[in-house]
Write a protein that binds this DNA or RNA. Structure first.
Lengths: 248, 248
DNA sequence: CCCTTCCAGTGGTATGACCACTTTCAACCA
DNA sequence: TGGTTGAAAGTGGTCATACCACTGGAAGGG
């Protein structure tokens, strides 16, 4: 009979996916394990080899399999680089999602900084500190400055020592890195921006060192809010200038 | 000659991917556009249909294509829902990460509840409220109670109206749903738990209605912390009882 | 005019064959 | 005896062809 051939009444591709989900959750497949050959797997799952290959390819694209020609397919720890590819594509399609991704960034950082206040060690402090120094040295260079700003925030998230938060942060980081630089280019000419940047970041840093979660989160939120404010001001300035000097 | 057949000297699958990357970034393929049929595409790209299908499947899994049986493949705006698949597989690989995922949950909810205070409308209020009522009705049933607890928190996140946060929450929620029920089963017998659950959730709800972000986040964090506390107590109780009454 | 039926086009699956790469090991030569 | 070589087996990579299942519209009948 055509139905209930193996165990699932699922058809085709979905059968393969559910098989892997089960195997992984049950622990039958561990990291580094080698899968059966495509021919054996297709036979045992009751699907054709092309169908099986479509599923394996998809899993490989998500980063869960490492398929090597002539050797076989191996279970791999999913790596985040897929997600950065994904976000890059999606940004090309709808640039307006960046604002919303910012909400995710704020969420992650605010929780991570609380954890950092509890968990960070001296090595974390010195790492964050060095990025802060770097940030102060590059105030006049939008590109290097944006990069330093970005790595400063990354080091805070890392100091939280939560794999889940770090993973999520990395997933959106490719977008954030670019936006850091763009923002710097926008706001570099706003009066008082240099002093503000130094003070804001230093206060955030000091709150972590003081191991005061409430203060740290509060400072960080203020930092984000004021950053928004500066960006609005720079837009206003740009448009005002455009009105009096229509061409560049 | 075998090489330089079309334009790229790439072979097979990679040729298909690079083709789509170019088409998408160049704007030749817009949202909602219908792709050529698999047979035509395969012919025009100089690859076989199975190979083309592997690539299309992978793109569909990443959310960039919507393939419909009998109709064709359409270019789709990739939403962030791929993250759900990603995290499902991801955590299947390392089940011990579940405690850490809780940090992600806290991060998302605390930011979402702040947004909810600004953005939520009457419909959101009534939805959250109804889930709160449901929660109060199911205090004695660990399963239904855990489910109600879960949906209450979901409705808060939805009220924040941030697609990125909602998606991330969905991604980790499949794990959390199970843990909600398990926790209820653990803590259902702890003295005072019923009153606490009602009060804590009601206060969180009222803070949202009052549109007070700081209070709402504070209550929510307390809720999480006290939940931890209750769980610890129940463990202590269970082990103490086990010492005096070794069986069951 | 509406409903039914059929058909062409599409994705979904299956089969079998062949190619390219990797590893192994046995045969061969020094 | 020891080292080198190359043949064979097993793997993923690709291809061609055929057929099935679903969709939608056109042609036919009521």
């Amino acid at each position: 009979m055509a139905l209930a051939e193996n165990a699932d009444d699922l058809q085709g591709t979905e059968k393969v996916f559910s098989f892997f989900r089960e195997q992984l959750l049950a622990g039958a497949l561990k990291l580094g394990d080698r899968l059966l050959s495509e021919r054996e797997l297709a036979l045992s799952l009751g699907v054709s080899r092309p169908v099986l290959r479509e599923a394996l390819r998809s899993l490989a694209m998500l980063g869960f399999l490492d398929i090597r020609h002539g050797k076989g397919a191996y279970v791999r720890a999913a790596d985040i680089s897929v997600l950065t590819d994904f976000f890059t594509f999606s940004l090309a399609q709808q640039p307006d999602i960046l604002d919303d991704v910012m909400q995710a960034r704020i969420a992650i950082e605010c929780q991570a900084i609380r954890l950092a206040c509890e968990r960070a060690g001296d090595s974390d402090f010195s790492r964050i500190g060095s990025h802060l120094s770097r940030l102060m040295e590059t105030l006049d260079d939008p590109e290097a400055g944006g990069e330093a700003d970005f790595t400063f925030h990354v080091s805070i998230v890392e100091a939280g020592r939560s794999p889940a938060l770090i993973t999520l942060y990395q997933a959106v980081s490719e977008l954030l890195r670019r936006s850091h630089v763009e923002r710097r280019q926008l706001t570099v000419k706003v009066p008082g921006i240099r002093d503000y940047l130094v003070d804001a970041h230093r206060e955030v840093f000091l709150s972590i060192v003081a191991r005061d979660p409430d203060a740290a989160e509060k400072r960080l939120r203020e930092h984000f809010a004021i950053g928004d404010e500066f960006r609005r001001k720079s837009f206003i300035a740009a448009y005002s200038k455009a009105a009096s000097q229509p061409k560049d």
